[in-house]
Design a protein around this nucleic acid. Structure first.
Length: 655
DNA sequence: ATAGAACCTGTGAA
DNA sequence: ATTCACAGGTTCT
């Protein structure tokens, strides 16, 4: 166990030897995962377009010189976690207690007291009161972490990745009232274990990613180009309801705004769970505020769970989403979807903490919590020759019926599922069956359905064919199809032919590599010299790829082989890809449309109001290193206006 | 059955 | 200062 001497700060990589024991920060538990199996930055970061609710905060900790004396023996090899039973773990956890949300705050514009501020993590004014940081004596060495955090229904999960050692560290934060009462034993037994189980499930750790990378790279030269630089792109197993909402928001939208919308939805329609405080960077780092001289205060973040469908069913939701949260035309889709779900599946929602409970019990499917008796639809793929297909318009009508006054037709369709359990139950359906169910919702088409299936419903072969896919299919694979239903399916099938059962996972690697947000990811910047983009745009010799005959591909239920983490991992630092491809121009007709809508008395696109300039430091400025100014709002979470800032004006014409 | 147009909003670039 | 294209599409005609 020879650890390199100088790996103190944000080591991009060092070989993750199983012999190197984990060194979790105080209060954190360890989960053994090599970076080739998952790289959080490429997976849960809200820049990836997969999950949208994780925050990324920089945290600095003084480097502990003397070896942390931990009594645990860490097994080498496969992913296995160690939950330290040491009481000091709990002590440390309780020491840094979360701050309560201000109860006196009076916010009329929102349902929850803090909703105007917390979703952006307001910087506190006073930078003097440093409570947790040790007094910084002369030459303290600081280590910077990126900490990801997200609220589940009953807790906040904190995640850090130690790439050099091959561990993910996690920690559970609870509301004040609960955390104060817990003994160390309870903390571990009631919460930390559940978090660990949830994390394994959520991160899909049973799938051997590194091994699949090798297989994909063998079959696909294009994939091989990205395999090293974009190692660790793993598909999450997200909550279906949240995933459904997020990808309804995704239509005709960019990743940054999708994330903002999902966050805004949470903060507006679910109560605050707890507030955490992130200290400002230590002065010694000299990364940030040295130029300004302004001592930054701590960043406070209040976490909200994702709201249940029932919270989005009241009449005013659509208008609120539209005028206050700037959802645009997607407001109606979200509202209708929530309404149809809540009125169709009338069983009680699972209690708080169901995510971890499900994972702890090893139950992948929803029907555990709710009896699924009078299902109107079979749990197996529906026999397609139905008399009269239930159309989206029908669903729309159904949504608009009064709450209690269910027509005979409606009541016949009701189930004892809850919205949550119904969506979970789609995980046990076949790909076409679950897809058909999803497409019934307004705002869900083939692409969005495939996103949901891939990212939350155990359909790893599902390939969402979007603009990117058409583009790189043509450019890199020579697959040219006409955009449209037929081309969509053909393209997806051909990629399934190429990549196999987990084709959707491979697709995600290419997709991520194709994001402009990651255009410079792990690319050594040659000083002053721009790397030419011809590398990627130039045609690549790919004999055979163009002639894959599109046999119908029948997706199979996912298998879950145990992960065999590869101990070796090499990072490629070749400055190969600095691509920015040129997207195809859209039809000129859009110009007309824009002009027309602008002249239709809408609010101006750019508001000049400055009053609501509250920044949105989802990530501290030091972390936003987007080098491409052309990045469409990816690089920084600093909108010109806040959600609460906008004035409601438009009474939309409803056709 | 298949094309086009329309749809909200925010941002960088021209 | 203004305008425009574009962003992980879907719905309607």
């Amino acid at each position: 166990m020879s650890s390199p001497a100088g790996i103190s700060r944000c080591a991009t990589f060092a070989p993750g030897s199983p012999l190197i024991p984990p060194r979790p920060p105080p209060g954190y538990a360890s989960l053994r995962v090599l970076p080739s199996e998952i790289l959080l930055e490429l997976t849960i970061s809200n820049r990836c377009g997969q999950a949208f609710r994780w925050r990324a905060n920089d945290v600095w900790e003084p480097v502990d010189r003397e070896e942390a004396k931990r009594d645990t023996v860490y097994p080498a090899g496969n992913s296995s976690s160690v939950v330290t039973k040491d009481e000091s773990l709990v002590d440390a956890a309780v020491a840094n207690r979360p701050i309560k949300a201000d109860p006196d705050e009076n916010d009329t514009s929102s349902a929850w007291p803090d909703a105007e501020h917390d979703d952006v993590g307001v910087k506190a004014e006073h930078g003097q009161k440093k409570e947790s940081t040790s007094s910084l004596t002369g030459d303290v060495e600081w280590q910077r972490w990126t900490e990801y955090s997200m609220a589940l229904s009953d807790r906040v999960i904190l995640l850090r990745q130690d790439v050099s050692r091959g561990y993910v560290y996690h920690r559970t934060r609870l509301p004040d009232a609960i955390e104060a009462q817990l003994s160390g034993h309870d903390y571990v037994e009631l919460y930390e274990r559940g978090t660990d189980a949830w994390l394994r499930d959520y991160l899909n750790l049973r799938v051997p990613l590194d091994q699949m990378y090798q297989e994909w790279a063998d079959k696909d030269k294009v994939f091989a180009r990205f395999a090293k630089r974009f190692a660790g792109v793993r598909m999450l197993r997200q909550d279906p309801w949240e995933c459904l909402c997020a990808f309804i928001c995704s239509s005709n939208n960019n990743i940054a705004r999708i994330g903002q919308m999902v966050m805004a939805l949470s903060h507006r329609y679910s109560p605050p769970l707890l507030t955490l405080e992130y200290p400002p960077p230590p002065p010694t780092t000299g990364t940030d505020a040295t130029s300004t001289g302004v001592e930054a205060g701590p960043t406070r973040i209040t976490y909200h769970p994702f709201p249940a469908a029932a919270a989005l069913t009241s009449e005013d939701v659509e208008g609120t989403l539209r005028s206050e949260l700037a959802f645009g035309y997607r407001a109606k889709y979200i509202w209708q979807t929530a309404r149809v779900l809540a009125q169709t599946h009338v069983g009680p929602e699972p209690d708080c903490g169901y995510e971890c409970r499900l994972a702890l019990e090893g139950l992948n499917l929803a029907p555990v919590h709710v009896t699924t008796r009078n299902l109107s639809r079979p749990a197996t793929p529906p026999p397609t020759p139905r008399k009269r297909k239930r159309t989206k318009t029908d669903a729309n009508r159904f949504a608009k019926e009064g709450d209690g006054s269910a027509s005979t037709e409606s009541s016949r369709l009701q189930t004892t599922h809850s919205p949550t359990s119904f969506l979970h139950s789609l995980r046990s359906m076949t790909y076409p069956g679950a897809r058909a169910e999803l497409i019934k919702f307004q705002g869900v088409g083939p692409k969005v359905a495939d996103c949901i299936l891939l990212m939350s419903m155990d359909q790893p072969s599902s390939i969402p064919v979007d603009r990117h896919v058409y583009q790189f299919a043509a450019r890199w694979y020579g697959m040219r199809v006409k955009e449209g239903t037929k081309g969509y399916e053909e393209l997806a099938d051909r990629f399934r032919q190429l990549w196999g059962e987990y084709a959707g996972w491979a697709h995600s690697v290419i997709f991520t590599a194709d994001l402009r947000s990651f255009q410079n990811f792990k690319v050594e910047a040659v000083k002053g010299e721009k790397v030419k983009q011809e590398d990627l745009s130039s045609s690549i010799e790919l004999p055979g790829l163009n002639t894959i005959d599109a046999k119908p591909f029948v997706p199979t239920p996912p298998t879950a082989p145990l992960v065999a983490a590869q101990p070796e991992y090499e990072m490629l630092l070749k400055p190969v890809d600095k691509s920015s491809y040129h997207r195809p121009r859209r039809p000129v007709s859009r110009r007309v449309q824009t002009l027309e809508s602008a002249s239709a008395g809408k609010e101006p696109t750019h508001r000049s109001t400055l009053e609501g300039k509250a920044s949105c430091p989802l990530r501290p400025s030091s972390q936003a290193q987007t080098s491409s100014p052309a990045e469409n709002a990816h690089g920084d979470a600093t909108p010109s206006t806040t959600m609460a800032d906008r004035v409601k004006i438009t009474r939309r014409k409803r056709a």
